[in-house]
Design a protein around this nucleic acid. Structure first.
Lengths: 242, 242
DNA sequence: GGCGGGATTTGACCCGCGTCAAAGCGGGTG
DNA sequence: CACCCGCTTTGACGCGGGTCAAATCCCGCC
């Protein structure tokens, strides 16, 4: 192991965004090198999470936003009646914590679905530099807006009352998001349990399990536990249309 | 009628936010008088809409955000399969158009449910002044975040698989939003049709109609067409919990 | 390699909500 | 005032998916 050299470590920390594979999806997208350095400087730390670890709890004070660097997380909220609702699954390049901007507290909890790492962005500093980095403001709004678009897709899916259409739409959308990350669009590894997925889709887990089987019998996908291979994208899309 | 006096007209236009009943819910909230005047100056116009008029179409170029001054609107999107999904109902004080920030085009359409008026905020100018009015940026994010919170409530509602729970949750949330506007929390006038409401809730309109009847038989509400009176808020909440 | 426990699959049953159909109701128009 | 048309209500029926129950699979651990 090399000797611990503070100068090199500091340089690495300061230049991580510029070398990050996700820089085109994340906040630095579209910014010039000097501005990216300024973002680097406010990234407080890059935290590792084990599967099941909680990034933030609903009700806890809001301090920072987080960008997912690797892995995946779910967000969930408990309604007044104590019912748990999974709001979304989040992949690398996505920002989390937006919904807390309205108050001083997080409105939902975020939990890692597998070993993951995130970049922590203290919001006070983000606000401070965003006034002087015009492109940052714009890129930030793009990410917020993309998040809202994802939520709208989710609502449209919940609106379909055919259960199999919901699952098909979910698989199709996951496939697109994987592709955006440069991964295979046809070979998915789901990181959430059947129970999580069912909750997200507004179904019960037995139904989800049966529907995976049915899509497989139809020759649309191949399933083995959490590994899903998309065999016939056209059929998948048409199933999603009811 | 008084003579048309340009000086007075100009003054009125420039000071409308300061005198608006909604100023505490809208962008000016928390800003001092000088900053509110700056917002006033970029409000391009205050448009009147008749019931059924479209404020913007999905796919049309994004130029401005809109704050609802009076009336109510619905937002809706057509999925790839051609299915229409109503994403939300919007009341005075709420900002519309956020979801277009990611691209240059609106992702959904907005249509007036009754005679309504909106303030138009050209986004280019909003961006320009937000760098120099720090509180504006914060208030803007609060409104975006509130919008996301509403969407999350919607998802939680769609997750409940008991149809009657969805309707109860909808009525409860409408009641809270009315109260926020200083209106009666117990006497609601729904401005959307049963078909719109059913679509929003992920149900069919016959079911919604029957459920209104059932809630009335239970003594929880009183319904007459689009007039709803909440008689027993506690029962309404417990029905919403399944 | 054997064991234990959570995750997933599979089966049987039945109720709630979607579907189709028809009748009221109300508001706008000539 | 009478007509018309869209919105809403009400009824009958069937099936998709929820519920309960049990078997099976798989992975980590000893």
């Amino acid at each position: 192991m090399p000797a611990n050299n503070p100068a090199i470590d500091l340089d690495q920390v300061r230049r991580q965004c510029a070398r990050c594979d996700l820089r085109d999806l994340c906040l630095p997208a579209g910014l010039d090198s000097a501005d990216v350095d300024r973002i680097d400087q406010i990234v407080a730390d890059r935290t590792s999470l084990a599967s099941g670890d909680t990034l933030y709890h609903a009700g806890s004070p809001f301090r920072a936003l987080y960008v997912i660097k690797s892995g995946s997380l779910k967000t969930q909220a408990v309604s007044e009646g104590g019912e748990l609702q999974i709001l979304g699954f989040h992949l690398p390049g996505e920002i989390m914590g937006f919904d807390a901007l309205a108050g001083e507290r997080h409105q939902c909890s975020a939990e890692a679905l597998e070993a993951s790492s995130v970049c922590r962005l203290p919001y006070a500093e983000l606000e401070r530099i965003s006034a002087s980095v015009p492109g940052l403001q714009r890129q930030f709004m793009r990410l917020v807006s993309r998040e809202m678009g994802d939520d709208h897709d989710h609502m449209a899916m919940m609106g379909r009352n055919q259960a199999i259409a919901r699952l098909a739409l979910f698989l199709h959308s996951m496939s697109k998001r994987q592709a955006r990350l440069g991964r295979s669009a046809d070979q998915l590894t789901l990181t959430m349990s059947r129970a999580d997925l069912a909750n997200y889709l507004g179904l019960v887990l037995e139904t989800v399990s049966r529907l995976f089987g049915r899509l497989q019998d139809m020759g649309v996908i191949e399933v083995r536990r959490r590994e899903v291979k998309i065999l016939d994208r056209e059929s998948l899309k048409s199933v999603g249309e009811c």
